[in-house]
Amino acid sequence: MSDAIAITCPLTDPSVLLSLRAGTMVRVSGTLLTARDAAHARLHQLAQDGCPLPVSFHNQALYYTGPAPAPPGFIIGAVGPTTASRMDPYTPALLAKGLKVMIGKGERSAAVISAMVQHQAIYLGAIGGIGALLSQTVQHARVVAFEDLGPEAMYELVVKDFPTVVLIDTIGEMYYRKGQVPYRTRLPPL
């Protein structure tokens, strides 16, 4: 990842995202919020009830993960990405609240991609299967909301050089599509 682009979240200038095209390797430092299914459902319910959200999403990065417990002497346990599409139904509303960077794995819905283009947000892929290594990029971790959800609570993680690749960029281009093209031709004839 030595040739990766570095960004710091929350973003002071979201226009830095415009030049990050699908397939670009990005190292993320700064603060990441975390949330999975249950936390998204709670956020959705709060918004429906007209209640304030427990955190601001303005220019923030949201990482889809439910970390493992921290062994003694560690800041956090394994903290790899979970499948982002489970959060799709809730995502356009968060993008409208200023969310700019999402980190997870897997495809996103057409509705999410169109909201990303509208709000100039990007979706970064963290590598599934390197949860232990990713825990080493975490310098500080604290629960910021829904503590009763255990591993599904919302955390604030302070990270340094968290490795990612741009999966969907601000013009809606998808690395999963782009990346498969050269390899599809190599599949045996059917």
């Binding site: 390197i130 232990a132 591993p151």
Partner: peptide, 16 residues
């Protein structure tokens, strides 16, 4: 690297 670190540190390979 993840496999090496997990084996050495005892931190789970994956949070899941």
């Amino acid at each position: 690297d993840n496999a090496d670190y997990a084996r050495h540190s005892g931190v789970a390979l994956c949070q899941d």
